[in-house]
Design a binder for these strands. Structure first.
Length: 518
RNA sequence: GGUCGGUUCGUCUAACGGUUAGGACACAAGAUUUUCAUUCUUGUAAUAGGAGUUCGAUUCUCCUACCGACUACCA
């Protein structure tokens, strides 16, 4: 969710400014490669309607991350793992100019230092002070440095954070910020072990090479911003440095910390846009799509989580968001996700759908034996009747099953409450009344199309007229009938049900009910 | 622990330094209805605390508290 929101804000900003939304895969951690993750990202964005202007190509029948340069993809390849040969020279350039150095301390040595510092209630950081006593090209003789580079492969290139400076930064959302360089550590830029850069180097080099003008990313990157400023400066790219905007985090609804991948099931809502199966563990994370959310609703709720238009309008399509979006109106504080509001958004979009659209969503949900028996028009009229009772299309069956099939059982409590001898005899009379009268019921030929229950007026007049004339209690009679029609006493209106199931089925259900209970 | 960021109803949020602090979700009550749902009306509910600047502070400054991020040869 957080990732999609970040992509969405980037997309909206780019579209509004007439710019390009570029997709680049930052896969510089060879340890963390996840098969299928790339396709998942592409599919998620596509589901939301967010199409990258640059970075993807159509190949072998599907979209994939672009590897080949083309008019559309002038900066290819867009996978950092494919740009591998590019980065080392930039790291070496920084070393040559005195902005970085080779470091030969092993991982074990460093974690030992960290552990020792922790034992003394201190924190070890590789910085302007400690670098003077560690194994690196600043402390070792040149010939030994050369030898170590050639004969070992666990060294790194670290950025040499300047001593005693103040980095002044600007953020499109947060405004101006300052950090003292002495509080920063010498981050690793390049690792010989896998011949790959770290995020910091690759990100700055690629943003420069790809002519990125705005970087909109999660607030977890804020602490790295001074380093990134210093990197642009060290490369001499200050004049074309992108502008930064750091988005507040999505928080867990129940309190502690940022929303994370594993929160989904625990909290009862999806954290992923699409269902995701972890290829290694087999662990399944539910998705908004599979839970029945419309992409419009998902995009809408994400847009409003941390941003607002300054008006009271809450419903926006992707297209409508483009002109009104602004980074100035992005909220600085973290937002807790609220699933009830998410459902409300989906309900709004469900209601905006036409009965025909809903019918085509409903049909695949029907069981095989039922699906073939009902026309598109029947389904559409049913959907028109029930759409305001549902948050999701996947609730349609439960709401409307009485319009497709007779109840298999009757609710015991409702039977006790409503099947009094008096009510049963009334039901018997109503049965006769219906048998002896004619009234319009659903047909595929009926014109004009009527998606409202107004067509049930004749049935309603017949029933209520009779019940009133007899001075019976309306609720008693109607609920007894509803029990026979649906199996319980909650739900659809009696005349609506009769209209849809027709006279014959109506009589059959009443007789069956009287037989079973009487 | 250190660095940085944040703090308005339960939740998402609005409010040129001047409002009876507004809206939405949720919740509650009432109306409508043959039940449920819908719809309509109404209601409950917030500026973290303390100083300061000011005629006036939700808004600006400082302190405290709390929340969060980061603190990896991960992104």
């Amino acid at each position: 969710m957080g990732g999609v929101r970040t992509a969405l804000y980037n997309y909206l900003y780019a579209k509004q400014k007439g710019g390009k939304f570029i997709l680049r895969i930052e896969d510089t951690d060879s340890q963390r490669f996840v098969p299928g993750a790339e396709d998942y990202i592409l599919e998620s964005l596509a589901w939301c309607g967010i199409v990258p202007d640059e970075g993807i190509e159509f190949k072998d029948g599907k979209y994939t991350i672009a590897s080949e340069k083309s008019g559309k993809n002038p900066h290819a390849p867009y996978r950092q793992s494919e740009r591998k040969p590019l980065y080392r020279q930039y790291a070496e350039q920084l070393v040559a100019n005195g902005y970085a150095y080779y470091a030969f301390d092993s991982g074990e040595e460093l974690s030992k230092l960290r552990a020792e510092a922790e034992a003394n209630h201190q924190t070890f950081i590789y910085n302007y002070e400690s670098r003077k006593t560690l194994k690196n090209s600043l402390t070792l003789p040149a010939d030994e440095v050369k030898k170590l580079i050639e004969t070992t492969d666990t060294w790194t290139i670290r950025f040499k954070i300047p001593e005693g400076q103040t980095v002044k930064m600007d953020d499109l959302i947060r405004g101006e910020m300052e950090v003292e360089t002495n509080t920063l550590d010498d981050k690793v830029l390049w690792k010989a072990a896998d011949q790959l850069p770290t995020y910091h180097l690759a990100n700055i080099v690629d943003d420069h090479l790809m002519e990125i003008t705005e970087v909109i990313r999660g607030a977890e990157w804020l602490p790295s911003l001074p380093l990134h400023y210093l990197l642009y400066k060290a490369f001499g790219w200050e004049d074309t440095m992108p502008r930064f905007a750091h988005l507040s985090l999505l928080l867990k609804p129940d309190g502690k910390g940022k929303l994370s991948k594993r929160d989904g099931d625990r909290l009862g809502f999806p954290v992923f846009p699409l269902k995701w199966t972890n290829p290694e563990t087999g662990e399944i994370s539910r998705g908004y799509r599979e839970d029945g959310y419309y992409p419009e609703a998902f995009v809408n709720l994400l847009a409003l989580l941390g941003w607002n238009p300054g008006t009271e309008q809450e419903l926006f399509t992707l297209e409508e968001l483009i002109p009104v979006f602004s980074l100035e109106r992005v909220i600085k504080s973290g937002a807790k996700f609220n699933v009830e509001k998410a459902k409300w958004f989906n309900e709004q979009y469900l209601r905006r759908r036409t009965p025909q659209q809903l019918a085509s969503e409903f049909r695949p949900m029907l069981s095989d034996d039922i699906r073939g028996k009902f026309s598109d028009k029947y389904l559409a009229e049913v959907c028109a009747l029930i759409k305001e009772r549902a948050h999701f299309a996947n609730e349609f069956w439960d709401i409307s099953k009485a319009l497709f099939t007779a109840p298999a059982a009757y609710d015991e409590n409702d039977v006790k409450k409503f099947c009094t001898p008096e009510n049963l005899s009334h039901a018997e009379e109503i049965c006769k009344l219906i048998a002896e009268n004619t009234f319009p019921t659903f047909t595929d030929e009926a014109t004009p199309e009527n998606y409202k229950s107004g067509c049930c007026e004749k049935i309603e007049e017949l029933l209520t007229g009779y019940i009133k004339a007899k001075e019976w209690k309306m609720g008693q009679v109607m609920n007894t009938l509803r029990l026979f029609f649906t199996g319980n006493t909650r739900g659809l209106g009696i005349s609506d049900i009769i209209y849809f199931i027709g006279k014959e089925e109506t009589l059959s259900r009443i007789r069956k009910g009287l037989e079973a209970i009487g």
